[in-house]
Deep mutational scan, measured.
Amino acid sequence: MEVRTIKVFTTVDNINLHTQVVDMSMTYGQQFGPTYLDGADVTKIKPHNSHEGKTFYVLPNDDTLRVEAFEYYHTTDPSFLGRYMSALNHTKKWKYPQVNGLTSIKWADNNCYLATALLTLQQIELKFNPPALQDAYYRARAGEAANFCALILAYCNKTVGELGDVRETMSYLFQHANLDSCKRVLNVVCKTCGQQQTTLKGVEAVMYMGTLSYEQFKKGVQIPCTCGKQATKYLVQQESPFVMMSAPPAQYELKHGTFTCASEYTGNYQCGHYKHITSKETLYCIDGALLTKSSEYKGPITDVFYKENSYTTTIK
């Protein structure tokens, strides 16, 4: 009895394709271990004539594949690729409408935090270190965002349907971005203890939790000093293409032309909904596939993004 075979390709990165001759009487799992086709788990399936010449994702289970996976995804987590594939199996079914010149995501599976993050990423200057993220990001900007969303979920250790947080998501993504040249110098002034300067680099240099107003941050924000008295913390120097200011959701007025974009969060910790506000020729609110415009805006804002380049204080 002759062994019926077909020729397929296996890959971990969709760049390096490895030619395989597979036995049609055995499952993919018996031949390769966990195997995925377009995100779908085909591990328990036997090869079919229609699979001839198709590319299958496999887990990096030998040295060659491990090197290829690390170079593309910059992670050695053995569960990463499987999590990416199972997320992709959902995100490829989502709709990605162009809204006001940006790629958004039609609401499904509690994905409003991903839509808000995706919209924000198209408006701030950011370059990702893992080629996987950078490639998928370019495709997302062009309207094909399924891979990018699935990668975000995998890097953030999230599953489809789980509630997510924009600030946490951005923080994970910033860790995989090139923020080497970003720098922030802060000064804390206390009447009792004097003053202390701190220099922050990388992710810490672009994120701040405690106030939404970048102007206020430049002037000074009140913080408790270690001595128990009130101290003032203010920005001395900022070198970065953008800054992200966050605070627990509270009524906040966004003035046209003073910011790049913002995240609105309605609801409580267990259950809520994100919308995205962007400042173009007027203010726009993007909620999944829905767009509304207004000249002014007041609502429960939790993150505001500002364009920056270089700032030095005039406070002496």
Rank of each mutant, 00 (worst) to 15 (best):
R4S: 09
I6G: 02
K7F: 14
V8N: 02
V8S: 01
V8A: 10
V8I: 11
V8P: 02
F9P: 05
T10V: 12
T11A: 02
D13C: 01
N14P: 04
I15Q: 07
N16E: 14
N16M: 01
N16P: 01
L17Q: 09
Q20F: 10
V21L: 13
V22P: 06
V22N: 00
V22A: 15
M24V: 13
S25M: 12
M26G: 13
M26Q: 15
M26N: 00
M26F: 14
T27Q: 10
T27A: 11
Y28E: 07
G29F: 10
Q30T: 02
Q30D: 10
Q30I: 14
Q30L: 14
Q31T: 07
L37S: 09
L37I: 09
L37T: 08
D38E: 11
D38A: 12
D38I: 04
G39H: 06
A40W: 13
A40F: 14
V42E: 03
I45Q: 10
I45F: 10
K46M: 13
K46Y: 09
H48Y: 12
N49L: 13
H51L: 01
E52P: 04
E52Y: 13
K54V: 11
T55I: 15
T55P: 07
F56H: 00
F56N: 05
Y57N: 14
P60L: 03
D62E: 14
D62I: 02
T64M: 13
V67R: 11
V67H: 12
V67S: 14
E68Q: 10
E68R: 10
F70S: 14
F70G: 08
Y73V: 02
H74R: 10
T75L: 01
T76H: 09
D77R: 03
D77G: 01
D77C: 09
P78M: 09
F80Y: 04
F80V: 01
L81C: 08
G82S: 13
R83T: 01
M85A: 07
A87C: 09
L88E: 00
H90A: 14
H90F: 04
T91A: 06
K92Y: 06
K92W: 04
K93S: 11
W94H: 01
W94N: 01
Y96T: 03
Y96C: 02
P97H: 12
Q98N: 09
V99F: 15
N100R: 09
G101I: 11
T103W: 12
I105N: 06
I105L: 06
W107N: 15
W107V: 13
W107F: 07
D109S: 05
N110D: 11
N110V: 02
N111A: 02
N111S: 01
C112I: 00
C112N: 06
L114Y: 01
L114D: 09
L114R: 01
L114M: 06
L114T: 04
A117Y: 00
L118C: 01
L118Y: 03
L119A: 08
L121Q: 01
Q122K: 00
Q122S: 00
I124G: 00
I124F: 05
I124N: 02
E125L: 03
L126R: 04
N129R: 13
N129M: 07
P130K: 02
P130H: 02
P131F: 01
A132E: 02
Q134C: 04
Q134F: 04
Q134T: 11
D135S: 08
Y138N: 09
Y138M: 14
R141G: 09
A142D: 14
G143C: 00
A145E: 02
F148I: 02
A150W: 03
L151W: 02
I152S: 00
C156S: 05
N157I: 02
N157S: 08
K158Q: 05
T159S: 13
G161K: 07
G161T: 03
E162S: 08
G164Q: 01
G164W: 04
G164Y: 03
D165F: 02
D165S: 14
V166M: 11
V166Q: 01
E168H: 06
T169P: 05
Y172M: 14
Y172K: 01
L173I: 10
F174H: 01
Q175W: 02
Q175I: 04
N178D: 12
N178T: 09
N178F: 01
L179V: 06
D180Y: 06
S181L: 10
S181F: 10
K183R: 12
V185G: 04
V185S: 05
V185Y: 07
L186D: 10
N187F: 04
N187K: 12
V188R: 11
K191N: 01
T192I: 08
T192A: 08
G194T: 05
G194R: 08
Q196P: 05
Q196A: 11
Q197S: 09
Q197A: 08
T198G: 05
T198Q: 15
T199G: 05
L200V: 12
G202F: 03
G202P: 03
G202T: 01
V203F: 12
E204H: 08
E204K: 08
V206I: 11
M207S: 10
M207I: 09
M207A: 06
M207P: 10
Y208P: 11
T211R: 06
T211N: 07
L212C: 04
L212G: 08
S213F: 00
S213E: 08
E215R: 05
Q216V: 06
F217M: 07
F217C: 00
K218V: 07
G220Y: 02
V221L: 11
Q222V: 09
I223G: 09
P224L: 13
P224K: 14
C225W: 01
T226R: 13
T226Y: 04
G228I: 05
K229E: 14
Q230P: 10
Q230M: 13
Q230D: 09
Q230S: 15
K233S: 13
K233M: 14
Y234G: 05
L235D: 04
L235V: 09
L235N: 06
L235W: 07
V236W: 05
Q238H: 03
E239V: 10
S240P: 03
S240L: 03
P241R: 05
P241S: 15
P241C: 11
P241D: 15
F242M: 07
M245W: 03
A247N: 08
P248I: 15
P249R: 09
Q251Y: 11
Q251I: 13
E253A: 15
H256G: 06
G257S: 04
T258S: 11
T258E: 11
C261M: 06
C261V: 01
A262F: 03
S263L: 07
E264R: 06
E264C: 04
Y265W: 08
Y265N: 06
Y265A: 07
G267Y: 12
N268M: 09
N268G: 06
N268H: 03
Y269S: 13
Y269C: 12
Q270I: 11
Q270C: 14
C271A: 15
H276A: 02
H276S: 05
H276I: 00
I277S: 05
I277V: 15
T278S: 09
S279V: 07
K280F: 14
K280H: 04
E281S: 08
T282A: 10
L283R: 07
L283V: 12
Y284P: 04
Y284L: 13
I286G: 05
I286C: 02
I286Y: 07
D287C: 01
D287W: 00
A289P: 09
A289E: 15
L291G: 12
T292M: 11
K293L: 09
K293Y: 09
K293W: 09
S294A: 13
S295F: 11
E296G: 12
Y297T: 05
Y297D: 05
K298W: 11
K298A: 15
G299V: 04
G299F: 03
I301D: 05
T302M: 04
T302R: 06
D303H: 01
V304Y: 04
F305H: 04
F305M: 06
K307I: 12
K307Q: 12
E308Q: 11
E308S: 11
N309K: 15
N309F: 11
N309L: 13
S310V: 14
Y311L: 08
Y311A: 12
T312Q: 13
T312G: 11
T313H: 14
T313R: 14
T314E: 12
K316W: 14
